[in-house]
């Protein structure tokens, strides 16, 4: 049975040790959409992706992917579900001891008994889709950052997953690679019928391609809406984020004791 929502997150909370990272998040991703989760660095965006991938378990709440609740699955069930997911890690996370070709072929070889001829064709198709068919014989160390990320994207879609997650796909890319990657995500989502979830803080690039945006701050969702909603939003936090202003609800200073007190200038003898 086909659910309209591929990913459903209900009231999820998660702590790293004693530090709460997420405090009750609700989020859904509809099939065929590109969703962006935005927020400043260290607000728990990557944690959210790891929860969807089932690499960590929430303290409370449920995560459902393709109608299955991750908390109720055992290791085998989780692995079966993960074959429907692809994930693009921040710096690609390519296997450094394999060529580009072997990296993309990795899942096909691990999870299927296809003959090597068929694998070869499928790998070259995926590499062609990201424009790197000619780089098949290179080692990951010979690739630029943008190319490595495209190879990782080809690897993530090797098994034709339903869901692809991107962890900071735009971080550290030059403007040209930025545009290429953004277009690629949109095009692959549309042509392959994927659902994409982006975690990013690059507002301008992602607003060009996403259907729906969630803003996360301090462990909760503070704003959500379509790209146009967000651009027009007058919520102070969103406004500060979209326009990159230094002052606003998010302050420049890490919480501390009053400056004057800290410097012991308040008439106290040192």
């Amino acid at each position: 049975m086909q659910h309209d929502n591929l990913v459903e997150i209900e009231d999820v909370a998660f702590d790293y040790g004693a530090r709460p990272v997420l405090k009750g998040i609700n989020l859904t991703a509809k099939r065929g959409q590109v969703i962006a989760i935005m927020g400043s660095s260290g607000c728990g965006k990557t944690t959210l992706l790891r929860l969807i991938g089932g690499q960590i378990k929430p303290r409370q709440g449920t995560v459902r992917v393709a109608g299955e609740s991750l908390g109720e699955l055992n290791q085998a069930g989780l692995y079966r579900l993960r074959r429907k997911m692809g994930m693009l890690f921040q710096f690609g996370a390519l296997f450094t001891d394999m060529t580009v070709f072997d990296n993309v072929a990795f899942q096909l070889r691990e999870h299927s008994d296809l003959p090597e001829d068929a694998i070869r064709d499928m790998v070259l198709m995926k590499l062609h889709a990201v424009g790197l068919r000619g780089a098949a014989h290179l080692m990951p160390s010979e690739l630029s950052g943008g190319m490595a990320r495209r190879v990782a994207l080809a690897r993530a879609i090797a098994l034709d997953p339903q869901l692809v997650m991107y962890d900071e796909p735009f971080a550290g890319l030059d403007p040209i690679s930025l545009g290429i990657t953004g277009n690629l995500i949109r095009r692959l989502t549309d042509t392959l019928g994927l659902t994409s979830i982006l975690v990013t803080h690059d507002v301008h690039e992602s607003l060009k391609i996403v259907d729906y945006v969630y803003f996360v701050s301090d462990g909760v969702i503070v704003a959500e809406g379509t790209a146009d909603d967000i651009k027009a939003s007058d919520l102070p936090y969103v406004h500060q984020f979209v326009h990159g202003e230094a002052e606003g609800p998010v302050t420049f200073h890490y919480p501390a004791a009053p400056y004057v007190e800290d410097l012991r200038l308040g008439g106290q003898s040192a």
């Binding site: 991938g53 690499q55 692995y79 079966r80 993960r82 074959r83 997911m85 692809g86 994930m87 890690f89 921040q90 710096f91 996370a93 390519l94 296997f95 450094t96 990795f106 899942q107 691990e110 999870h111 990782a152 690897r155």
Partner: peptide
Amino acid sequence: GLMKATEQLSAMEMMAVDPIAR
């Protein structure tokens, strides 16, 4: 250690391949 630091082991887990076994 480097495979872990560069998230290769996480990537493997996400590709439904157990890094302990593989």
